[in-house]
Design a protein around this nucleic acid. Structure first.
Lengths: 350, 350
DNA sequence: ATGGCGCAGGTATGCGCAAACACAACCTGC
DNA sequence: GCAGGTTGTGTTTGCGCATACCTGCGCCAT
């Protein structure tokens, strides 16, 4: 009973302090905090007054330890700067916050080892759920998660053998859709322009979808995959320039990303290449500048926010042991505009 | 001693399990995990083997409760989608992760009540630190934080009376700098174009800086502040169009944001307005497309990553009770380009 | 030979709370 | 008027770990 520690300068006020002031037992305070209506009116008021007076803030570490439930969800994305994932995380955070859950976040820079490290750390918080981006993980990551009994959602991609739950769409389908559209619009020499295809597995899948379609069509020029130095408009412009030198016959380009497309679009304008007459372009992302005055680019719009919302719903269902589908596919929405000479713009543009 | 609960399906493996397998006491395992070198080689190996065999993951909730330290930092930004904050958070996360800290994140949508709610929640995790964006908070938010003895950093803005620590720069100075540059380049009718000026206090401060300079200069047309519907290139184009109708004499525009500037730049091109001969533009943000081929826009580059890194350093210093300045000002870097007819582009472009 | 010292390792305690259980006071209906 | 519910509140226990404190062993100086 000796006071053999005094680490903290300010002694934290605890539930017992509140109980003492309110003249009730600690468990009544605990009950009040979890289910106010289960406490009689008189005590409810006394407790509320005591809490206000003491500025009591419950200690969730203790609560979590006792209840073996943290109400924390670990979220791991390749990049926070990438606006795709940022919007998904944003939607996810809003949805989870509404249910009293918090988000622990980390980014991997497309590095599986960083992901493993983050998973290991997050697991040590015994989170209520873990959200990963994509399906490609290290063996150890998979093992840890499978052995943990924590609900896991993999998002932004679909495929066989998810760890647990899955929300996303097929990137190969996106690449196929983009390419077929250009073929329909009359292109005969179609190239693909991407960035970081070695690290970004989903971009590589879109490229593969492109390649499949080109290879299986007769009468088309051989596929050409150009790679930009970075995920930026400038890099897109530079890579597009290089592409034109290598393959001057190109009359259509599938972009891995609207940002790259924007750069190429501008470069084409500078060079007086007529879009869509001489060159057609289609991007991916549905970023705002693709619509209307700035670039008027055809694109495929991924369900950015919807992914976040569905991840949240799945997790919440799993946590409260409700039924939930284990696999949700949310199809991206094609939006065809002037850059592919589409007859008329679709209204739906997200 | 009766086993009167069995909530979890899988019984978690604890430190005692490891201790039993390794044939040491639990405290030795605890010591090993915190300071491996303090344990003799023989036991160290036995413990490591036991950990591997059991796939033991320490429970940080318990550790945090016992040690009264969580190694979690709560970070609150207005928006995750805004790439300024996203980059800051990204840098912050990397820096803190390297020291074993985790980030709990939330976004407010520029709503002070949401911020208050988030602060309240984050405080209940007894975090090692809390990071806020800006200096404008509700009274209750301030009160909670001041009474908490948790290190607090306010970032992206500077001003008097920070709650605790502060890293940022003066947005009014940015507005002044932008405006003065346009005056130097010969503009005589300068407008400001922003979005969400009612909610985004920092944008409003830039507008105020603009207004101050215009008002205090003789021979200039009256200030004009145009407001776009949204923080997007399209909205920038539309607002620019409206501005031209209202004030056809305008020969220079200060933008609150590079995105808006991009839209206006494109709109000017479409209308055949010569930049910089007839119209000069300067943005804020230093987004990649401002450089070179796409828009070649003059801009003011805020120290996005540097803010995150400095926040991390300050927090770490404060946590380990090292000395740290309480106020760091990181000046934005002006980058003048063709859109303001700058003699030659500066090399520094981040 | 023996007392003292250093230090690796063990023992004991409690962090603040949730929740199972016990129990008292009050109903309800016959 | 009393058995058998209902509430509402109090008592108790332990979640898994960090850490203050203790123990015992080996070593050296006297």
């Amino acid at each position: 009973m000796t006071e053999h520690r005094q680490r903290r300068s300010t002694q934290r006020t605890t539930m017992s302090d509140v109980a003492r002031i309110a003249d009730v037992s600690p468990s009544t305070v605990s009950l009040f905090l979890r289910e106010p209506d289960a406490v009689s009116e008189a005590r409810r008021l006394r407790i509320q007054r005591a809490i206000d007076a003491l500025r009591y803030v419950p200690n969730r570490m203790a609560g979590a330890l006792a209840a073996a439930s943290t109400r924390v969800v670990g979220v791991i994305v390749p990049s926070l700067v990438n606006s795709f994932f940022a919007e998904t995380v944003s939607a996810l955070q809003s949805a989870l916050m509404a249910e009293g859950y918090q988000i622990l976040i980390g980014h991997t820079n497309y590095d599986a080892e960083r992901e493993e490290e983050l998973v290991r750390t997050f697991l040590s918080w015994s989170p209520s759920g873990i959200v990963l981006t994509g399906l490609g993980h290290s063996r150890a990551t998979r093992q840890m998660l499978e052995g943990s009994s924590v609900p896991v959602v993999e998002m932004w991609e679909v495929g066989p053998q998810p760890i647990d739950l899955m929300v996303g769409f097929s990137h190969a389908d996106v690449g196929r859709l983009q390419t077929r559209h250009l073929i329909e619009r009359g292109c005969r020499a179609i190239a693909f322009l991407g960035a970081q295809l070695d690290k970004d597995a989903r971009a590589a899948q879109r490229a593969q979808g492109y390649r499949d379609v080109v290879n299986s069509h007769t009468g088309l020029a051989a596929p050409e995959i150009a790679v930009a130095d970075a995920q930026s408009a400038s890099a897109g412009a530079v890579a597009f320039e290089g592409l034109l030198e290598r393959r001057p016959e190109v009359d259509g380009v599938v972009f891995s990303n609207d940002i790259l497309a924007l750069g190429a679009f501008m470069e084409a304008q500078r060079r007086g290449i007529a879009i869509p007459e001489q060159m057609r372009m289609i991007g991916f992302g549905g970023l705002d500048f693709t619509s209307g005055r700035v670039a008027d680019l055809s694109t495929i719009v991924p369900p950015r926010r919807e992914i976040g919302e569905n991840v949240a719903q799945m997790l919440l269902a799993r946590i409260s042991k409700r039924e939930t589908p284990t696999r949700i596919i949310l199809d991206p929405v094609p939006v065809f505009r002037r850059s592919t000479d589409a007859p008329r713009p679709r209204t739906r543009a997200i």
